[in-house]
Design a protein around this nucleic acid. Structure first.
Lengths: 328, 328
DNA sequence: TACAGGACTGAATATTTATTCAGCATCTGC
DNA sequence: GCAGATGCTGAATAAATATTCAGTCCTGTA
């Protein structure tokens, strides 16, 4: 009649439900309680380990592809996540985020300083990080804010969540991502609040970054780049972008006016970070990724299998430095 | 896209659902299928053992009470099933049937001849017997049919189900349970079809019977007994009934006119069966049970815990044969 | 080539399960 | 003893899951 969460009660319910296959309704009659309570009893039984559900391991990674990427591109780390063919880009990001998060969690050591960029895939990944951890990280925003209305994908938000999830503090870069001119930009960089954070980026042990292209980056998406900017970047041979840094096929940042206006981690700072992980979902970034690797802007990749395959296919056609072999 | 029930697919679904706690909807997006199919994938994963659910054993029996019953009444077998207080009689029967069935299944050996009576609790029990078994039993109906409209609780139906579930054949006693007079009854008993079955009852290794009282038996319930019959039975000191045999406090069948008109297993046949199991739910039959045991009509009991406790309480007040000790 | 049979699918729907909510009981600190 | 907090309950309901069903796509046959 009264509150009775004895093990025997829980076992009765669990046995009838899981072993004998009765519906909660029927279990309720045996136990003389409401169906609602049976639901609660079962939840408790699972929690207390009276009911144990084990699932044969699912291997979410494509280890052979990881090996090939490491070998072909001289990466220190490659995480290739399985993904069903034909997923929408949203679901693909979700897959990469879901299964990539545990790998990332394993790669980041306690007390690390981590530079972090925004982006949808990174957002997805960060939101799947295990909740109860205390790594005492320092998570540092790697690029200013693209515009005033902050959305969930922005570095500011993503970094905050990461620090909260893995435990640690978040250092925000409380400035716009770009200024009208170099002078203003430099002035801003001198501000103590900004300078401290910006310098901190150089001492990071790890970074999580997305990779953009000239036709597909957050700056295009939000209409930040003017036609003149785009033309200039094109002239500079831009093939990709990381944290607002546009680079050419060798992974070098072009000397454009944009370069002088952006506020984000410097290319040289990035090169100094031992573990810069590019987080990518999709197969349309191969050239940008290859160039970034060539320029030492990236040391590792987290990518879906189709993306990895595309990358390998492209590089087979156009050799990259450090490539030791070519297929067939 | 197509039919792909690969283990990897199943593991993916199982992992996301059971380990990561996603809803089937969300799993569906990962796997690029409909929610309906996820449900099917998961069912298959459970079936194939990719998902394994284990439940800490629930002990459905009250072993100490069983021991006390065996000791106090000299029974060969006692199965006492736990049941929550305050269950309706229907739910109580359900409990006894559900958990008693596996004990019964263990007690009945392959190739046994089993006499069977009708009754709600026996019905419940039989319907919980494990489906896939082949014991090559001969299940024999122990009493004729009470009236023309056969219901699910009648021996005819219950016996058929038992034979089907445990494997074996069912011998029906295709006659009414009682005749207008002795002569007709005896004539019927001479019919080959009837005689063969009736004789077979004597050679049974086991029997499942219910226990009635004069105020609560199938014959009262269906209005078979006339006031004159009842008066006569009362005069004969009737305290209980098994398979249409009304007996007194010593477990002896009274010499009433009813005795000469009923078609069912004979008391002497019953006494010869090594394992006569009384299947009881509820606490209102103690006197009838005790008398039956005294008269060797029962050798075992399957009963709910409240019934067992009542039985022990009654017998503590009024000692029974074979009682070796008395409490306090 | 046409066509029946079988297997499989997702949309719609029926069924089952989890959650919300209001009511009641039991503490707790006056 | 009493207001307020806390916790537990089942009815109602929201949400999730299982099943039905009609259509599609094979595959083997005439």
């Amino acid at each position: 009649m009264a509150n009775d969460y004895s093990d025997d009660r829980l076992r009765l319910a669990a046995r009838l439900y899981y072993v004998d296959g009765l519906a909660q309704n029927e279990v309720a009659r045996f136990a003389k309680v409401s169906q609602a309570k049976v639901s609660r009893l079962l939840a408790l039984a699972r929690e207390r380990g009276i009911v144990r559900i084990t699932v044969a391991d699912y291997e979410p990674r494509r280890r052979e592809l990881e090996g090939q990427l490491v070998e072909r591109f001289g990466l220190s780390t490659a995480i290739v996540l399985k993904a069903i063919d034909g997923l929408s880009s949203g679901d693909l990001r979700r897959s990469v985020g879901h299964f990539g998060s545990s790998a990332v969690e394993a790669l980041i050591k306690p007390r690390d300083v981590v530079a972090i960029a925004g982006g949808r895939t990174i957002h997805e990944l960060v939101h799947h990080l295990p909740q109860p951890a205390n790594k005492a990280l320092t998570v540092v925003q790697a690029m200013g804010s693209v515009d005033a209305n902050v959305n969930a994908f922005d570095a500011q938000e993503v970094g905050r969540v990461m620090a909260q999830r893995l435990g640690g503090s978040f250092l925000a870069l409380n400035v716009p991502a770009y200024m009208p001119d170099r002078r203003t930009r430099d002035a801003l960089l001198q501000l103590e609040q900004v300078r401290n954070v910006h310098e901190r980026l150089g001492s990071a042990q790890a970074a999580l970054v997305g990779i953009g292209t000239l036709s597909n980056s957050v700056f295009i998406e939000r209409g930040v780049l003017k036609p003149a900017d785009i033309a200039e970047l094109e002239r500079a041979g831009t093939v990709g972008e990381i944290c607002g840094r546009f680079y050419d096929a060798d992974g070098n940042e072009g000397a454009t006016s944009w370069r002088d206006r952006v506020i984000s981690i410097e290319v040289d700072q990035l090169r100094r970070i031992p573990l810069v992980l590019g987080v990518v979902s999709g197969s349309d970034r191969s050239a940008a990724i290859i160039a970034a690797i060539r320029g030492k802007l990236l040391k590792g990749l987290i990518i879906d299998e189709a993306g990895a395959i595309a990358l390998l296919a492209v590089s087979a056609a156009a050799p990259v430095p450090k490539a030791r072999k070519r297929k067939g």
